[in-house]
Protein backbone atom coordinates (compact mmCIF):
# COMPACT_ATOMS: atom_id res chain seq x y z
CA UNK A 1 0.00 0.00 0.00
CA UNK A 2 1.47 3.30 -0.97
CA UNK A 3 -0.03 5.31 1.89
CA UNK A 4 1.19 3.36 4.84
CA UNK A 5 4.51 1.88 5.91
CA UNK A 6 5.23 -1.59 4.63
CA UNK A 7 3.14 -4.18 6.44
CA UNK A 8 5.01 -7.16 7.79
CA UNK A 9 2.43 -8.96 9.87
CA UNK A 10 -0.24 -11.54 9.21
CA UNK A 11 -3.00 -9.51 10.85
CA UNK A 12 -1.92 -6.25 9.25
CA UNK A 13 -2.84 -7.41 5.77
CA UNK A 14 -6.47 -7.84 6.76
CA UNK A 15 -6.53 -4.51 8.58
CA UNK A 16 -5.04 -2.86 5.50
CA UNK A 17 -7.67 -4.37 3.24
CA UNK A 18 -10.54 -3.28 5.48
CA UNK A 19 -9.05 0.17 5.87
CA UNK A 20 -8.70 0.49 2.12
CA UNK A 21 -12.33 -0.48 1.53
CA UNK A 22 -13.40 2.00 4.17
CA UNK A 23 -11.30 4.79 2.71
CA UNK A 24 -12.65 4.16 -0.77
CA UNK A 25 -16.27 3.99 0.39
CA UNK A 26 -16.08 7.11 2.49
CA UNK A 27 -14.01 9.02 -0.08
CA UNK A 28 -16.75 8.38 -2.64
CA UNK A 29 -19.43 9.58 -0.24
CA UNK A 30 -17.31 12.61 0.60
CA UNK A 31 -16.87 13.50 -3.06
CA UNK A 32 -20.58 13.03 -3.83
CA UNK A 33 -21.62 15.19 -0.90
CA UNK A 34 -19.20 17.97 -1.83
CA UNK A 35 -20.38 17.86 -5.44
CA UNK A 36 -23.93 18.11 -4.12
CA UNK A 37 -23.03 21.26 -2.20
CA UNK A 38 -21.28 22.81 -5.19
CA UNK A 39 -24.22 21.99 -7.46
CA UNK A 40 -26.78 23.55 -5.14
CA UNK A 41 -24.58 26.62 -4.88
CA UNK A 42 -24.38 26.95 -8.65
CA UNK A 43 -28.05 26.37 -9.46
CA UNK A 44 -29.41 29.75 -8.50
CA UNK A 45 -32.98 29.22 -9.65
CA UNK A 46 -35.23 27.64 -7.02
CA UNK A 47 -37.07 24.56 -8.15
CA UNK A 48 -39.19 22.02 -6.36
CA UNK A 49 -39.58 21.63 -2.63
CA UNK A 50 -36.40 19.82 -1.80
CA UNK A 51 -36.10 16.08 -1.87
CA UNK A 52 -39.20 13.99 -1.26
CA UNK A 53 -39.22 12.35 2.15
CA UNK A 54 -39.16 8.83 0.68
CA UNK A 55 -35.89 9.55 -1.10
CA UNK A 56 -34.46 11.00 2.10
CA UNK A 57 -35.28 7.86 4.05
CA UNK A 58 -33.90 5.69 1.26
CA UNK A 59 -30.59 7.53 1.48
CA UNK A 60 -30.57 7.12 5.24
CA UNK A 61 -31.20 3.39 4.78
CA UNK A 62 -28.21 3.12 2.43
CA UNK A 63 -26.03 4.69 5.06
CA UNK A 64 -27.50 2.43 7.71
CA UNK A 65 -26.36 -0.58 5.69
CA UNK A 66 -22.92 0.97 5.21
CA UNK A 67 -22.53 1.49 8.96
CA UNK A 68 -23.70 -2.01 9.74
CA UNK A 69 -21.18 -3.42 7.27
CA UNK A 70 -18.30 -1.40 8.70
CA UNK A 71 -19.36 -2.32 12.21
CA UNK A 72 -19.51 -6.05 11.57
CA UNK A 73 -16.41 -6.28 9.41
CA UNK A 74 -14.29 -4.46 11.94
CA UNK A 75 -15.68 -6.42 14.87
CA UNK A 76 -14.56 -9.68 13.31
CA UNK A 77 -10.98 -8.49 13.12
CA UNK A 78 -11.20 -7.07 16.61
CA UNK A 79 -12.57 -10.33 18.00
CA UNK A 80 -9.78 -12.29 16.31
CA UNK A 81 -7.08 -10.18 17.82
CA UNK A 82 -8.57 -9.35 21.21
CA UNK A 83 -11.18 -11.86 22.31
CA UNK A 84 -9.04 -14.89 21.49
CA UNK A 85 -5.74 -15.26 23.28
CA UNK A 86 -2.48 -16.19 21.58
CA UNK A 87 -1.70 -19.74 20.65
CA UNK A 88 -0.09 -21.71 23.52
CA UNK A 89 3.17 -21.98 21.63
CA UNK A 90 3.38 -18.23 21.04
CA UNK A 91 6.66 -16.63 21.98
CA UNK A 92 6.59 -14.51 25.12
CA UNK A 93 8.28 -11.14 25.18
CA UNK A 94 7.77 -8.50 27.78
CA UNK A 95 7.74 -4.87 26.68
CA UNK A 96 8.30 -2.20 29.30
CA UNK A 97 7.92 1.49 28.68
CA UNK A 98 9.86 3.95 30.78
CA UNK A 99 10.50 7.64 30.21
CA UNK A 100 11.80 7.61 27.40
CA UNK A 101 12.92 4.17 26.39
CA UNK A 102 11.42 0.83 25.44
CA UNK A 103 12.85 -2.30 27.05
CA UNK A 104 12.24 -5.80 25.78
CA UNK A 105 12.69 -8.79 28.04
CA UNK A 106 12.98 -12.41 26.94
CA UNK A 107 12.21 -15.01 29.61
CA UNK A 108 15.24 -17.12 28.81
CA UNK A 109 15.56 -20.89 28.90
CA UNK A 110 13.20 -21.36 31.83
CA UNK A 111 10.41 -19.63 29.89
CA UNK A 112 9.52 -17.70 33.03
CA UNK A 113 9.88 -13.98 33.61
CA UNK A 114 11.76 -13.28 36.80
CA UNK A 115 10.29 -11.05 39.47
CA UNK A 116 10.79 -7.32 39.24
CA UNK A 117 10.77 -4.89 42.13
CA UNK A 118 10.33 -1.22 41.66
CA UNK A 119 12.73 -0.43 44.50
CA UNK A 120 15.53 -2.00 42.46
CA UNK A 121 14.92 0.04 39.32
CA UNK A 122 18.16 1.76 38.48
CA UNK A 123 18.95 2.41 34.87
CA UNK A 124 22.41 3.82 35.65
CA UNK A 125 23.65 0.59 37.17
CA UNK A 126 22.24 -1.48 34.35
CA UNK A 127 19.03 -2.71 35.93
CA UNK A 128 16.37 -0.51 34.31
CA UNK A 129 13.53 -2.92 35.03
CA UNK A 130 14.40 -3.67 38.62
CA UNK A 131 15.08 -7.40 38.10
CA UNK A 132 15.22 -9.14 41.43
CA UNK A 133 18.53 -11.08 41.65
CA UNK A 134 17.10 -13.15 44.48
CA UNK A 135 14.58 -14.73 42.12
CA UNK A 136 16.14 -17.68 40.28
CA UNK A 137 13.78 -17.13 37.35
CA UNK A 138 15.33 -13.76 36.64
CA UNK A 139 18.85 -15.14 36.25
CA UNK A 140 18.39 -16.01 32.61
CA UNK A 141 16.16 -13.11 31.61
CA UNK A 142 17.56 -11.18 28.69
CA UNK A 143 16.80 -7.47 28.56
CA UNK A 144 17.36 -5.68 25.30
CA UNK A 145 16.60 -2.31 23.83
CA UNK A 146 16.17 -3.94 20.46
CA UNK A 147 13.18 -6.15 19.76
CA UNK A 148 14.22 -9.15 17.71
CA UNK A 149 11.54 -11.59 16.63
CA UNK A 150 11.54 -14.71 14.50
CA UNK A 151 9.52 -14.50 11.31
CA UNK A 152 6.37 -16.57 11.07
CA UNK A 153 5.90 -17.30 14.76
CA UNK A 154 3.16 -15.79 16.83
CA UNK A 155 4.35 -13.41 19.51
CA UNK A 156 2.58 -12.61 22.74
CA UNK A 157 3.69 -9.23 24.00
CA UNK A 158 3.30 -8.55 27.67
CA UNK A 159 3.04 -4.79 28.09
CA UNK A 160 4.06 -2.93 31.19
CA UNK A 161 5.05 0.57 32.05
CA UNK A 162 7.25 1.75 34.87
CA UNK A 163 6.11 5.34 35.19
CA UNK A 164 3.47 6.93 32.98
CA UNK A 165 1.19 5.72 30.21
CA UNK A 166 3.09 4.97 27.01
CA UNK A 167 1.72 3.74 23.73
CA UNK A 168 3.46 0.87 21.98
CA UNK A 169 3.03 1.56 18.28
CA UNK A 170 4.58 -0.61 15.60
CA UNK A 171 3.26 0.89 12.34
CA UNK A 172 4.78 -1.91 10.26
CA UNK A 173 2.79 -4.50 12.24
CA UNK A 174 -0.40 -2.38 12.39
CA UNK A 175 -0.18 -2.80 16.13
CA UNK A 176 -0.89 -0.40 18.92
CA UNK A 177 -1.62 -0.83 22.60
CA UNK A 178 -0.99 1.39 25.55
CA UNK A 179 1.48 0.40 28.23
CA UNK A 180 -0.30 1.35 31.42
CA UNK A 181 1.51 1.43 34.74
CA UNK A 182 -0.03 -0.96 37.23
CA UNK A 183 -1.49 -3.15 34.49
CA UNK A 184 -0.13 -5.98 32.42
CA UNK A 185 -1.71 -5.99 28.99
CA UNK A 186 -1.29 -8.60 26.32
CA UNK A 187 -1.29 -8.21 22.56
CA UNK A 188 -0.43 -10.87 20.08
CA UNK A 189 0.54 -10.76 16.43
CA UNK A 190 2.54 -12.72 13.89
CA UNK A 191 5.45 -10.98 12.17
CA UNK A 192 5.97 -12.50 8.75
CA UNK A 193 8.31 -10.56 6.56
CA UNK A 194 11.90 -10.24 7.80
CA UNK A 195 13.14 -6.69 7.96
CA UNK A 196 13.55 -3.70 10.20
CA UNK A 197 10.50 -1.93 11.59
CA UNK A 198 10.19 1.08 13.80
CA UNK A 199 8.62 1.10 17.26
CA UNK A 200 7.17 4.42 18.38
CA UNK A 201 5.44 5.82 21.43
CA UNK A 202 1.92 6.93 20.61
CA UNK A 203 0.83 8.33 23.95
CA UNK A 204 2.30 11.59 25.13
CA UNK A 205 4.58 10.66 28.02
CA UNK A 206 6.73 13.69 28.71
CA UNK A 207 9.32 15.83 27.07
CA UNK A 208 11.14 12.96 25.38
CA UNK A 209 7.96 11.54 23.84
CA UNK A 210 9.04 12.16 20.26
CA UNK A 211 12.36 10.42 20.84
CA UNK A 212 10.97 7.34 22.51
CA UNK A 213 11.61 4.98 19.63
CA UNK A 214 13.11 1.57 19.14
CA UNK A 215 13.71 -0.94 16.37
CA UNK A 216 11.99 -4.20 15.67
CA UNK A 217 14.11 -6.71 13.79
CA UNK A 218 12.22 -9.58 12.23
CA UNK A 219 14.68 -12.31 11.28
CA UNK A 220 14.47 -15.94 10.19
CA UNK A 221 14.00 -18.39 13.04
CA UNK A 222 17.59 -19.67 12.90
CA UNK A 223 19.14 -16.24 13.07
CA UNK A 224 16.86 -15.41 15.98
CA UNK A 225 17.93 -18.45 17.97
CA UNK A 226 21.56 -17.48 17.37
CA UNK A 227 20.96 -13.91 18.50
CA UNK A 228 19.14 -14.99 21.64
CA UNK A 229 21.86 -17.53 22.35
CA UNK A 230 24.54 -14.85 22.24
CA UNK A 231 22.50 -12.61 24.52
CA UNK A 232 21.88 -15.49 26.88
CA UNK A 233 25.58 -16.25 26.99
CA UNK A 234 26.46 -12.62 27.73
CA UNK A 235 23.81 -12.52 30.43
CA UNK A 236 25.10 -15.66 32.09
CA UNK A 237 28.64 -14.33 31.96
CA UNK A 238 27.35 -11.20 33.65
CA UNK A 239 29.09 -9.15 30.99
CA UNK A 240 26.12 -7.16 29.84
CA UNK A 241 24.60 -6.55 33.24
CA UNK A 242 20.87 -6.34 32.98
CA UNK A 243 20.51 -4.61 29.68
CA UNK A 244 22.30 -5.17 26.43
CA UNK A 245 22.46 -2.61 23.74
CA UNK A 246 22.23 -3.63 20.09
Amino acid sequence: MPWAPFNGSLEGARIDRLLLYNLIAFAIVFALAQVWIIVVMLRRKPRGNGLPAALRWAMIAVFGVLYIWTGIAAQRLWANSQFAGPAPEAMQVEVTGAQFQWYFRYPGTDATFGAVRSQLVDAASGNPLGLDPADPASKDDVVSSLLVLPAGREVDLRLRSLDVIHGLFIPGMRLKENAVPGMILHVHFTPQTPGTYSILCSQVCGLGHARMQARLLVVPEKQFTEWLGVREHLRQAGLAGGVSRP
Partner: peptide, 12 residues
Protein backbone atom coordinates in the same frame (compact mmCIF):
# COMPACT_ATOMS: atom_id res chain seq x y z
CA UNK B 1 -17.13 5.54 11.34
CA UNK B 2 -13.61 4.55 10.26
CA UNK B 3 -12.14 5.47 13.62
CA UNK B 4 -15.06 3.85 15.42
CA UNK B 5 -13.90 0.44 14.20
CA UNK B 6 -11.58 -0.82 16.92
CA UNK B 7 -9.53 -2.95 14.57
CA UNK B 8 -8.76 0.06 12.37
CA UNK B 9 -8.29 2.29 15.39
CA UNK B 10 -5.44 0.06 16.53
CA UNK B 11 -3.54 1.52 13.61
CA UNK B 12 -5.01 5.02 13.45
Amino acid sequence: PILAQPALDTYL
